[in-house]
Amino acid sequence: MSTMRSAGQISLRNLRAIPRLPSAFFPALLMPIFTMIAFSGTFYAVTKIPGFPTDRSINWYMPIGVLFGSSFSGIGIGFTTIRDIETGFYDRLRMSPAPRNALIIGPLFTAWMRTVILNLIVVPIGVALGVRFEGGILAVLSLLAASLGMSTLSLGWGLGLAYRFRDMRAAAIMQLSIFIGLYLTSAQMPLEFIDGWLHHVATYNPITYILYLARQGLVLDGTSHDMSWSNTWPGLLAIVVLSGLALAFARRGLDKLDK
């Protein structure tokens, strides 16, 4: 079997699990909605700080919610993989003659599908609650690109950890690291408004730039809502580099699984 055909089959199995075990998908769906509503409601007043790049708090907080959800779509598959390893089902997959890469690419397709479904649900809710894509269709595509990027790197990271620990400890590490990685950015406030230690950490955290990619067209850049290459390329670069590292980490873990 070719890599793609095997990957398709594996992906199909994971996708079937969504309607059959909705409780496993719900958290990844509810979390971004909750984050979006709770943050923009609680921190409603921050838009009144002089120089804040938007007067709609939901425009500022929806992207971080979507990125949280996308990350959980990725590591959610890491959770399933741990369960499969624990029950022995994963051995069955590994024993098949399917190419090894299919075992990673298949789940990747699933993570992307989930991320698209998530965007299709969360973004309209956001718009209904007041989100305005000032940058037009390009702004939507930019958010989607950032979102798919987060799900790719989370999937690689999640699978890699699942292969290495092979028990629920990996799940805790996945959640914690994604959580911290996303919070140590301009998640809550614009980088220019952040003081002290967090300012330094967020400046060097590549996920900050994925967040720029996600937010552009929703918030002002200087005085315009236009898309800019300078807000795009750092995010894309961060996605390519982090995803590459994470997927390589997963592949090495998979190869070490039989040792």
């Binding site: 921190f43 007043a45 700080i49 809550q188 952040i194 002290g196 967090l198």
Partner: peptide, 15 residues
């Protein structure tokens, strides 16, 4: 710790 760094400018908001 996160809030202390992020929201230092918010303390001058009305209310």
């Amino acid at each position: 710790a996160l809030g202390a760094s992020s929201f230092s400018r918010a303390t001058s908001l009305p209310g």
